[in-house]
């Protein structure tokens, strides 16, 4: 009963407020003369401004791509070629090939990390923050460009692997998963180090990840060998979990990195 009464009262309040809105007519209306005067003034001000036409998303992406250093593009091109040569090398045993593939999986990430960290070196952060798009947007665009380049490279490596008799599961276990995890770790590190990350940090991070993946791949190869499933491992739930887990981790790392980038100004001015 009380609830019904409450609802009825609320309906009445809404109706009174809505009615007030309908009949407000004159009370909150500016005088016509004053309004026209202001509009004329604003029109005159508007004529003075010159807006630069906004670029489309694709144009902005191409812009950012052109600002990436040539070294990055060379690296992005050289790494898949290197992997393809490795996968096509018949002189190496499959086990050794997979070990090397795992150890080198962080390479594209190291190249990307060096490029992203350039934004904090030699006063670049302040310069980029003062640009038309602030640093968070710029870094977001760069991440996207590097991500597209990485995806293309990965597709090439997968195609080369499949053509040379490696299963998709093997390539996921020994190449894609290490690549996704390494990229995530690098992004998380970049968010932590920011301007402190200079010179050796990406190289050391890459070396550390490379050594980790050698050990991990060696252990995994032993386990799969012991179970006699090295060539035929196709457990879909495990592979799917690794793939989506890796992608999820990478998405989290990207978001975290961009969030940390956005906080840069606040940190600088608060001397944090």
């Amino acid at each position: 009963m009380k609830r019904r009464k409450d609802r009825e009262m609320e309906r009445q309040i809404r109706s009174i407020l809505n009615q007030a809105e309908m009949e407000e007519g004159d009370w909150g209306r500016p005088e016509e003369g004053r309004k026209q005067e202001t509009l004329a003034f604003l029109r005159a001000q508007r004529r003075k401004i010159r807006l630069r036409p906004r670029k489309s998303f694709a144009e902005r992406l191409l812009d950012q791509a052109s600002w990436l250093s040539p070294g990055v593009w060379l690296g992005q091109l050289a790494v898949p070629v290197l992997f393809c040569l490795l996968l096509g090398n018949e002189g190496l045993e499959k086990r050794d090939t997979l070990l090397v593939l795992s150890a080198c999986a962080p390479l594209p990430g190291v190249i990307g990390l060096i490029e992203l960290l350039r934004s904090w070196q030699s006063g670049m952060w302040e310069l980029e923050e003062a640009c038309r798009y602030h640093l968070q947007q710029i870094q977001g665009m760069r991440l996207l460009v590097l991500g597209i380049a990485d995806s293309a490279g990965t597709a090439v490596v997968f195609a080369a692997g499949l053509l040379n008799g490696y299963s998709a599961g093997m390539l996921l276990l020994f190449f894609l998963f290490p690549l996704l995890v390494s990229d995530s770790v690098f992004l998380l590190l970049a968010g932590v180090f920011r301007r402190g990350a200079k010179g050796l940090v990406p190289v050391l991070a890459g070396l550390g990840m490379g050594i980790f993946w050698i050990y991990q791949a060696s252990w995994l190869l032993d386990v799969l060998d012991m179970l006699h499933v090295l060539e035929s491992y196709r457990s879909l739930p495990v592979l799917a979990a690794l793939l989506f887990g890796g992608l999820g981790l990478l998405a989290f790392a990207c978001a975290r990195f961009l969030n940390e980038t956005g906080k840069e100004e606040q940190r600088l001015w608060n001397c944090a």
Partner: peptide
């Protein structure tokens, strides 16, 4: 407007002037 056709700003301003005035009031 963002493509550079700034004359449409007049229409946008005219459309929202009364509401903004009332809000400020």
């Amino acid at each position: 407007i963002q493509r550079g056709e700034t004359e449409y700003l007049d229409l946008l301003i005219e459309r929202h002037y009364d509401g903004i005035f009332r809000f400020c009031l």
